[in-house]
Amino acid sequence: MQGRKNYSEKLFISFQLSDRVPKENFYRRLSETLDLQFLYRDTRELYGKTGNPSIDPVVFFKLMLTGYLENITSDRRLLEHCSMRMDILYFIGYDIDEPLPWHSTVSRTRQLYPALLFESLFDKVFAMCVEKGMVSGHTHAVDSAPVKANASIENLELRVPAQSIKAHLTAVDSDNRGEKEGDQGNKTAMTANPNQLKRLAKHQDNLKATKSNRLGANNEKRSY
């Protein structure tokens, strides 16, 4: 079932997230600029009608966009990074006391999306950022000598991703596959202690040496 995150900002006794994020902050302006409601329509067919609600598609793609802009390819590190940034929490629609989705949920959601659909939707989201003048394309040329103005860098400079979208998504798949394999490798192996193994071996020897009237006991191919 397609999940939809309903965000209603909470007013604490003396704290409100919107008051702590400057109006010129990049992620605040990005939140006020982007309209990602089309994602509900374009992903509706991927979800069933019953079951537990999924992660909100808008939240999911905002997380993916944040990872790209911050050059973070690990879902685990991405969620840790977001949890410590008030501006990013404001961008994805979470209050400071709300737990973010598990990193494994984010990884699983990305894996369940058809690859071509995921890339096309991500490209569309990123293209909207470029069209709104919030970020720069990865490859661009300037036919003049650029000079930085003596003004607010936050207001004037475009956010420039460290690598292309394709290279970033490839790194995301690689890093999170490695983390998953690492988690599985860290599981504790369970085994009997030496005394238990000795008692078991003695019991098996007794079974082999003792004739039994039970069905199948005299079968040479029986296993102990």
Rank of each mutant, 00 (worst) to 15 (best):
Q184D: 13
Q196L: 09
F61H: 08
M86D: 11
S83F: 11
D123C: 12
Q111N: 14
S144L: 12
E220N: 06
Y27K: 08
G185S: 13
R159F: 10
C82Q: 01
Y27P: 09
V172W: 07
T191I: 02
H81L: 09
E32T: 11
L78K: 07
P99E: 11
H168V: 05
D19K: 03
N176I: 12
A192Q: 07
Y68A: 10
S223H: 08
L200C: 11
K187A: 07
R44S: 12
N25G: 05
S104Y: 07
D56R: 10
I88D: 01
R108Y: 02
A192G: 02
T188I: 15
D183K: 10
R29N: 09
G216Q: 08
V147T: 10
L39G: 07
T170F: 07
V172C: 04
L39K: 03
L30N: 00
T50Y: 07
R199K: 15
T50P: 00
M134S: 07
N150G: 01
K211W: 11
A141K: 06
A127V: 04
D123M: 11
W102P: 00
K23W: 04
F122W: 04
A171G: 00
M134I: 04
A209N: 14
F60C: 00
R4M: 13
P101D: 05
E157M: 14
L117I: 11
E70I: 01
Q163R: 14
R41I: 15
R20E: 13
K124I: 10
E45Y: 03
L63F: 15
E80S: 13
Y224P: 00
